[in-house]
Write a protein that binds this DNA or RNA. Structure first.
Lengths: 137, 137
DNA sequence: AAGCAAAGTTAGCCTTGGCTAAATCCTGTC
DNA sequence: GACAGGATTTAGCCAAGGCTAACTTTGCTT
């Protein structure tokens, strides 16, 4: 078990740190899209309840999403996504579904599949996602 | 595709945030253990190079690891782990190897397996790890 | 044994993403 | 049409984990 080349190893960790930076954004746009689809609107209170944080934290995070052009800036209005936000939400949802389906076929229980998918889905390369899609029990 | 129960969904996101908090610590103890095993010692410069950060960042992070009783506090000396640090490193390495082996059997290329494993390994429940161990091409 | 280069540490800054408390806005009810 | 209460935002705090720049320690070389 030789150690990897230092530069190669660094590239891996840098990749993980990059993934972390967009994780929260992806989770937010995905949940906003889901709420709009299911309930017609997404409110700050809903996000706070479902993420398990305070509404102040949601407001803080939304400010970054607005700054980055993912969420419409309409204070005191129901949340909605920009075109870029919708695109990110679609990609996130698709990936989320692939991971869930894969874990279920692997024999993981539904509850645990949903639990693990939430953390897993942000750290999968295109190649691994394809392998998961191709996998049939 | 109904939305999950709000409390259930919150528990998932809280779990991911908890995992994030120990990720860096696990990566550090694992790399320190590997370096000691392969090279006889682990130096701050090695960690910085392999994580892709500055030595100042490593020193900063090591201060937290020392505070938390995972790394021996011996300034200007080669790094070594406490008993707790060794235990965490062993668990991390075992999990890392399970994930790598699983991805390879799934058909993912070695380079991508190493890349994805680095992000993946911190978000797997015991059940999913068992399923990955049991999986044979 | 001195000096210098490399290694390590410290100081001070930034962003992210949590929090509480307080202020502000909106809305339904009377 | 006022107002109470719920929803939202703002202000100010904190820790983690990045950075640069400056300083200290170590250890090699001569």
């Amino acid at each position: 078990m030789a150690l990897p080349d230092p530069g190669e190893q660094a590239r891996r960790f840098i990749k993980v740190r990059e993934a972390h930076r967009s994780e929260v954004q992806q989770d937010y746009v995905e949940l906003i899209a889901d709420l709009v689809a299911e309930q017609g609107e997404a409110r700050v209170t809903d996000l706070a309840e479902r993420f398990g944080v305070t509404t102040a934290t949601v407001a803080n995070t939304l400010a970054r999403l607005k700054r980055d052009g993912l969420v419409e800036d309409r204070p005191y209005r129901s949340l909605s996504l920009t075109a870029a936000g919708v695109a990110m939400a679609d990609a996130s949802r698709r990936r989320h579904d692939i991971v869930i389906g894969f874990l279920l076929r692997l024999g993981v229980s539904p509850a645990v599949a949903e639990l693990d998918a939430e953390g897993l889905e942000h750290h999968l390369s295109a190649e691994t996602l394809r392998a998961m899609e191709a996998f049939r029990g």
